[in-house]
Structures are given as structure tokens and as C-alpha cells.
Design a protein around this nucleic acid. Structure first.
Lengths: 116, 116
DNA sequence: GCCCATAGTGACCGTTTGGATACTATTGGA
DNA sequence: TCCAATAGTATCCAAACGGTCACTATGGGC
């Protein structure tokens, strides 16, 4: 891990961030938690296509990485809420940037397809 | 793919971007191409750990997605140069943001470990 | 004639990732 | 009494991903 050159060090930093937000549904989860605290099934509805098992796993990873806070209420039926941690909050500009870039990219593609 | 709600649409946009820059070495490659046009082996040196096969594959994906331009010179020994496309250039603020966030994250972790 | 360098490709393999499906506990309501 | 809802687990499976190793073409230098 000791950086041989400054370039090596900086390279790793890009990867570090990507590893944390990489996972098929993590982007979706983080994006929706920007606006609100959500319960498990609310997240499921916002990530249609994600199975329970996978969504659970990704949420646990986000929690383990300190980006998301999971709060369990001792009720029946169970209630579990997910929200961004302060650290997760610092990702906000990045998530927003990813979203707007992706939107522009998709629109560009539509334009190209229309032209063809 | 037709969005059922605005939220669904926006979610996909985050994923769209992540899918393009996801890949173990794509972040590294893009980061280094921010500064310079690089030959294949120059990129290899900046991504130590990536094998030829994998690096080639990721470069081809970046090329196919229109983020990177690959130029082959008919020389011997071969010379192939990689540089950001105009579209890839538009990722610059995101790459820079990922890098600085990752740097801060790693420093934070060092601080925590030192405190423990 | 042989080796070097560059920028790959091809065969093979193991791990990780995500997905399908079925199952659980608890309690309030019909 | 039986069913529904929530937030999961458990088990099994397929595909994707990355890694290792060997191999290629070409022309210049020794």
C-alpha cells in the first residue's frame, strides 16, 4: 500500500471511492436516501428488480462502510429505517453529479439514435 | 425501461454513470488520462496489478462507451495511444471529486486508527 | 541467426456477484 | 382460525469478472 509515486497514491483514492459505491443497487439506494429516511420495503419499491437478499446485502455493506445508518424498532411487524450517515451525506455532491451526468448521457444517446 | 415514476428515472441515471466507470481499473485509467495521452504500457505502469488482458478489456470497454479514444500507429514495435474523448472529458469533475473524496476518506480512516 | 520490445490474444480457472426460490417470526385483523 | 404484512435468512445456481500463463507478429540491433 505504500505509494511508490504520487500518481499511485492518487489512483488508489479514485478506486477507494468507487469500491464503496459500487454494487448494482448502491447508487440507487444512496440516491433515494438523499431525500428521505426510508424503510426496507420503501427502498425495495424504489429499486424494483433488486431481490430482498441482494438489497439486504448491499444495505449491510453500506452500513459497514459507515455510509448508511440502520435503525431497528422493536415492533411487530418489524420496522427498520435507513438513512444517510454524516459521512454518507458528504457523498451528496458526487451522487448528484453522477445522476446529472447519467441523465445527459442518456439524452445524448437518444439524440444519436434519433439521428440514425 | 419506461419510467413509472420520476424517482425510477433518476435512479437509473445514477446507475448509468456508475456502470460506465465501474470496473476494477477504469477509475485509474480515467484518472491518469485526465493529465495526458498515454500509451498502453504507460497505463500498465500506472495501474500496477492490472494484467495485460484485463487492462486491454477495460480499455476496449471505455472505447466502446465513447469515453476514450484509441489510436493505433502502424509502426513496429506497435504504438497505441489512449486519450479521453470529448465525452470522457466531461467526466473530469466527477473523477476529480471521486479522487478527493477517497483521499479524505482514507485520511479519516488513518485518524480513526491512530485514535484507537 | 537470435533476442528484444510493444501491444496485444487465447485457453483456462477460481471467486465474487447477483438472482430464484422457499422459508422464518410475530401479531393484529377478518 | 387463518391470513396478511415486515424484514429478513437459507440454499442453490448461473453468469460475470478478474487473474495466470502461454502464445503471437514484426522489425531493429548485436
Amino acid at each position: 500500500m505504500s505509494p511508490e509515486t504520487p500518481a499511485d497514491y492518487e489512483k488508489c483514492a479514485v478506486e477507494t471511492t468507487l469500491e464503496l459505491i459500487d454494487g448494482k443497487w448502491k447508487g440507487v439506494v444512496l440516491f433515494h436516501l438523499l431525500d428521505a429516511t426510508l424503510r426496507f420495503n420503501e427502498l425495495r419499491r424504489r429499486a424494483p428488480g433488486a431481490t430482498q437478499r441482494v438489497l439486504t446485502k448491499q444495505l449491510r455493506e453500506l452500513e459497514a462502510d459507515g455510509l448508511v445508518i440502520r435503525t431497528v424498532y422493536a415492533e411487530v411487524p418489524p420496522r427498520v429505517e435507513y438513512r444517510l450517515s454524516p459521512l454518507g451525506e458528504t457523498l451528496r455532491p458526487i451522487i448528484v453529479a453522477l445522476k446529472s451526468w447519467g441523465t445527459a448521457y442518456k439524452e445524448r444517446q437518444l439524440g444519436e439514435r434519433a439521428a440514425a
